[in-house]
Design a protein around this nucleic acid. Structure first.
Length: 587
DNA sequence: GCCGTTTTCGGCCCGACTGTTTTCAGTCG
């Protein structure tokens, strides 16, 4: 039983207790313990074995004994009994907007509703509207929610949310009543998957801005609209929320709505410890909730709020309560990488395998973007589905790349293509090409493309074996996950990272927004082990060069700096590192 | 269920909006 599964069970216990109508603080204790366990940096088994669980904040006697039971026996009687007291599927009803634990409880107890079909049926026959606390509108909203859920996913890839948000932000920027504006929430924190888009605006005319927002073209429906906030559904099914505040309140509201929730809780607690109150309206010298301007500690920017709480400025990407407070207090926050520091991508495809563009097109486009280099790493022969290259075709591609580089040199261009391969890691961990071919390539990325069903131990062993090949520079997309589509294959990340630390092998941060693989939560560990990151586009068409920006956002979430990322190096230095990686093990 | 320089009980982050109510509970972020 791994820690993710333990966290999942604790979090589910929290929800089930809510459905039971338990003390909300008790349910919160389970939810908070789940988050704590999920973000542990050392193995849960070790903590349990050494009986150190109780030393973790938020885990007391009761949770310690439950987690110990889970980890050592793989089961938890308390959870099994609790789960058995509710019908299967009841929890899924919570996914409908407007339905929380209390309403789901009422639907279950009064009407015996346990699934979507029964709920639809009861709404259609008007039974739901007759319940206490429900009404016509609630009933209609539930039906709408069920329908919406069928049509659209409730969560979205980062690039989809960004492309929907940026034009709207531009509209706000040019609106005369808007003073300052920003996105907030998970989008601003650069989370890999976004639930909804949050906009924050400061204005002296909030009503005018709210009206403007709900009237924007491309808005499908308006779900809520008040004096200072509104919720809409955009054309592509993404929900967007707007909040309008005064300009004095803007930095406080920005910090508040950027979150994360966990981060905010700590911020508030820090304020309370200093005899202050922090909310979305300000930081106040008071012991109770207030909005009294006379008590305000004025802050013009987010930076000043952090200062008042004796913290270094914490970048939005780090606001997950994953150690940022300890570092900010000690003045030890890293200077995070900027996407403009990236100079090229070391894992990309061309029309030689499954990419769209010719080598010449790639040169023109990437030169135009200001890149210094671009590695061509088409698939290897076992990836039939992707027209993987045979050794012969790869040899001719190497010749063509060299010819192009020769031509570029003659033209006085400093841009270079790099020869390479995304070589398949076969089921037993061997590579799809022999070493005598790999040695002739400048860049080798090794990735898994088949055999997803192997056990965690087998896949881990496979990756480690690939990492140990001296000609491999980088392990590509470690888990093969496709966000919101395909589960990652099971990998013991820590073991793979440890192995890479030993061999000097780099790990890819695949910047394709469907992948963002390796996950940001693991980079801090990799960085501490001295493992370098390569932020790769895995580009299959030239527009994918834009993924570099997204990848840098994810790298920032992983606490990475310019020095941690190989492809911030200028070409000459990169070539030295590419050679050193091999030279360290090959004479 | 957790926690403690307010310490073994009594707190636990808190405000906006909606819908159902007629003063507030539930949901959401």
């Amino acid at each position: 039983m791994n820690k993710d599964r333990v966290a999942e069970i604790l979090s589910e216990i929290g929800v089930l207790l809510e459905l039971k109508g338990e003390n909300p603080f008790k349910t919160r204790a389970y939810a908070s313990a789940a988050r704590t366990i999920e973000s542990l940096s050392e193995p849960l088994e070790k903590l349990v074995a050494e009986e150190r669980l109780g030393t973790i904040k938020g885990i007391g006697d009761a949770l310690q004994s439950k987690i110990t039971e889970l980890v050592s026996t793989g089961k938890l009687a308390y959870y099994d009994n609790l789960k058995a007291s509710f019908p299967e599927g009841l929890l899924s009803l919570l996914q409908i907007p407007g339905l929380g634990p209390k309403k789901v409880k009422a639907l279950y107890e009064k009407l015996g509703i346990t699934n979507f079909d029964q709920l639809t049926e009861s709404c259609r026959s008007n039974k739901v509207a007759e319940l206490d606390g429900f009404g016509e509108k609630t009933q209609a909203k539930i039906l709408e929610g069920i329908e919406f859920r069928k049509t659209y996913a409730s969560r979205h890839h980062l690039h989809a949310a960004l492309s929907a948000a940026e034009p709207i932000l531009d509209q706000f920027r040019s609106h005369p009543d808007v003073i300052r504006c920003s996105t907030a929430g998970s989008l601003r924190r650069s989370k890999e998957v976004i639930g909804d888009i949050d906009f924050l605006v400061s204005s002296k005319q909030p009503a005018s801005v709210v009206d403007f927002f709900v009237e924007l073209p491309g808005i499908m429906s308006v779900s809520a609209k008040g004096e200072t906030k509104a919720s809409v559904v955009l054309g592509d099914g993404i929900q967007a929320d707007l909040r309008v505040v005064s300009d004095r309140e803007f930095p406080f509201a920005l910090a508040y709505f950027t979150g994360s929730k966990e981060h905010n809780i700590v911020m508030r607690q820090r304020a309370i410890q200093r005899g202050l109150r922090l909310n979305e309206y300000g930081l106040f010298r008071a012991n109770e909730e207030t909005r009294d301007p006379a008590l305000l500690v004025p802050c013009a920017t987010e930076e000043e709020i952090f200062q008042q709480l004796n913290l270094e400025y914490i970048a939005p990407e780090l606001r997950e309560d994953h150690g940022e407070f300890a570092a900010a207090e000690a003045g030890k926050l890293p200077r995070l990488i900027e996407w403009t520091e990236l100079r090229g991508s070391l894992h990309n495809h061309s029309n030689w395998s499954d990419g769209q563009n010719t080598l010449d097109d790639i040169v023109t486009h990437m030169t135009g973007l200001g890149c210094e280099y671009w590695a061509i790493t088409d698939h290897s022969k076992s990836s039939f589905q992707a027209h993987g290259l045979t050794p012969e075709r790869l040899r001719s591609q190497i010749k063509e790349v060299r010819a192009i580089n020769h031509r570029l040199e003659g033209e006085g261009s400093s841009f270079r293509l790099l020869t390479g391969s995304e070589v398949d890691i076969l089921s037993d961990g061997r590579l799809d090409f022999d070493d005598d071919l790999l040695v002739d390539l400048e860049v080798v990325v090794a990735s898994i493309h088949q055999g997803f069903t192997q056990s965690e131990a087998e896949t881990t062993k496979r990756l480690i074996r690939a990492a140990e090949n001296p000609f491999v520079h980088t392990l590509g997309h470690l888990t093969g996950r496709l966000l919101l589509e395909r589960e990652p294959y099971k990998v013991n990340h820590h073991a793979v990272i440890d192995a890479c630390a030993g061999t000097g092998t780099w790990i890819e941060l695949n910047a394709n927004p469907y992948r963002f693989d390796m996950d940001w939560r693991l980079w801090h560990y990799a960085k501490d082990k001295g493992v370098k990151c390569v932020i790769n586009c895995d580009a299959h068409r030239q527009e994918h060069a834009g993924f570099l920006r997204l990848g840098a956002g994810i790298a920032r979430k992983g606490w990475l700096t310019k020095a941690d990322v190989i492809n911030t190096l200028p070409l000459a230095r990169l070539r030295i590192e590419l050679a050193l990686k091999r030279g360290a093990r090959v004479k």
